[in-house]
Nucleic acid binder design. Structure first.
Length: 437
DNA sequence: TCTGGGGTCCTAGGACCC
DNA sequence: TCTGGGGTCCTAGGACCC
């Protein structure tokens, strides 16, 4: 009806099923087929459910306290999240995919878009099945694969694949309209709660109706993002595969607290810790930040609600922990208001540029991780080589502002200070060298 | 009592300059 | 004293994703 671009493309979306829950099941084979849920950082909400857990009616994002009875009754196995494990498994899956597809875009920790354009439809489908089998065999992770002429349609196809026994579904041109008619508009990739409600009020309730709406109207009423989406639903590819996602635009570290925080000192301690972690990420990626944002807030459901942020332009781009902590603490003092119960805070590093100077980084010799002891050594090094002075010590025993998983984490109980420390000097990356003063 | 964390992109509106 | 328009840059906030 609308026709495809001359050079028609084929995209595949490979999505790991119940990814975090599947990872846990890989390392506890007895749990295969059992109800398993994984909780968010503070053991607050459900962030992944195995198929059996979904079958019990446990919803995504549901607060844990609401399902506690259900968990007991059905002996659901509950895990706190282990992002290092999931990151590692993700990498293994992505490596396998890159061996079998010419171009792979890692879209998220558990999803990748693949370019299948070189193949015919039948070949694509066969390749999908082959890939699915190999990923399962080599990593233990089950995946679903949706194949279609655009990324947005590949998302739709993936939903079908997830529901089918084969785990692979190819959406050909002639089947698009029929499938979209069965999909409600809020289930389309890129249509969130807000836009769905607004569209429904305009009489656009299914994905097919959205496909048939005038792109110009959508652009005027909403924005260019949704206009692209309409074209994509029509089979016209507007979202290319992003193979080399440019280096990060921002780095965030934020947490909600285990209990309400009311004093400025405690709030500062939390923010100093987050800043330290953010600076670490910065150095790992060989970047420096030109600005930073600090934000604090009471609980989302609290009354009165207080939510404020401060953006600070740094005198010069830096990735020194001490300098960044100094700035973040000053911002915290400006943001703090007595009388409020703070439940969350965070730090966002902005205006990232490639770090010009060689950066010193410390890694645990065995695990490659960090510890408080290492962090304080790192601060000492920053003090010696960097410009700022350390005003705040990032140490201390676990307390309320650490999450439950952090409190459980061995990095707060092991005496790593007694272990030898490895000092590595990484060469500068001069893609966009930062001007020397 | 207990409600995640880390990102991206777009737009509107204000400040500022010529 | 009165009166502009257009361009750019920046920021805050909204909306979306997993």
């Amino acid at each position: 009806m609308y026709g495809f671009p001359l050079e028609s493309r084929i995209f595949a979306l490979c999505d790991c099923n119940s990814f975090y829950a599947s990872c846990e099941q890989v390392f506890a084979p007895g749990l295969s087929g059992q109800p398993v849920v994984v909780l968010s950082n503070n053991d607050g909400c459900v962030v992944a459910r195995s198929t059996a857990a979904k079958g019990l009616g446990i919803g995504m994002g549901v607060p844990y306290f609401q399902i506690r009875d259900l968990v007991q009754e059905h002996q659901v196995k509950v895990f706190s999240s282990n992002y290092e494990l999931y990151g590692d498994m993700s990498q293994r899956v992505m490596e396998i995919l890159s061996q079998f597809a010419p171009a792979v875009e890692t879209y998220s920790i558990d999803e990748a878009f693949l370019d299948f354009s070189g193949w015919r439809w039948e070949q694509s489908e066969a390749l999908g099945h082959q890939l699915r089998q190999i990923v399962k065999q080599w990593t233990g992770i089950p995946v679903s694969i949706g194949i279609a002429p655009t990324k947005t349609l590949a998302k739709v196809a993936n939903r079908v694949a997830k529901g089918s026994t084969g785990g692979v579904y190819a959406l050909k041109e002639e089947a698009i309209a029929q499938l979209l008619a069965t999909l409600s508009v809020d289930e389309v990739w890129g249509i969130g709660r807000h836009h769905a409600k607004s569209l429904q009020a305009q009489g656009v309730t299914t994905a097919l109706e959205l496909q048939q709406v005038q792109p110009q109207w959508v652009r005027q009423k909403y924005n260019v993002v949704m206009e692209r989406l309409v074209w994509e639903l029509r089979g016209v590819s507007c979202l290319p595969l992003e193979l080399s996602p440019g280096s990060r635009h921002s780095i965030t570290v934020s947490r909600s607290f285990g209990r309400p925080v009311t004093t400025c000192a405690e709030l500062g301690a939390a923010i100093a810790t987050y800043t330290s972690r953010a600076a670490e990420k910065l150095r790992q990626q060989q970047l420096s930040a030109g600005a930073m944002q600090v934000f604090v807030s009471t609980g989302r459901f609290a009354t009165p609600c207080y939510r404020q942020s401060q953006t600070v332009t740094l005198p010069s781009a830096t990735n020194h922990t001490a300098t960044l902590i100094q700035q973040s603490l000053a911002a915290t003092q400006r943001l703090y208001r007595p009388g409020y119960a703070f439940k969350k805070a965070g730090v966002i590093l902005l205006d990232l540029v490639a770090a010009a100077k060689p950066q010193l980084s410390l890694l645990h010799p065995e695990t490659g991780g960090r510890s408080e002891a290492l962090m304080s050594v790192m601060d000492a090094i920053n003090r010696r080589y960097g410009a700022g002075t350390l005003q705040y010590a990032v140490c201390g025993k676990p307390s309320g502002w650490q999450t439950k998983s952090e409190q459980r984490s061995p990095c707060y109980t092991t005496q790593w200070s007694q272990l030898p420390v490895v000092l590595a000097e990484s060469p500068p990356q001069s893609k966009r060298p930062y001007a020397q003063p």
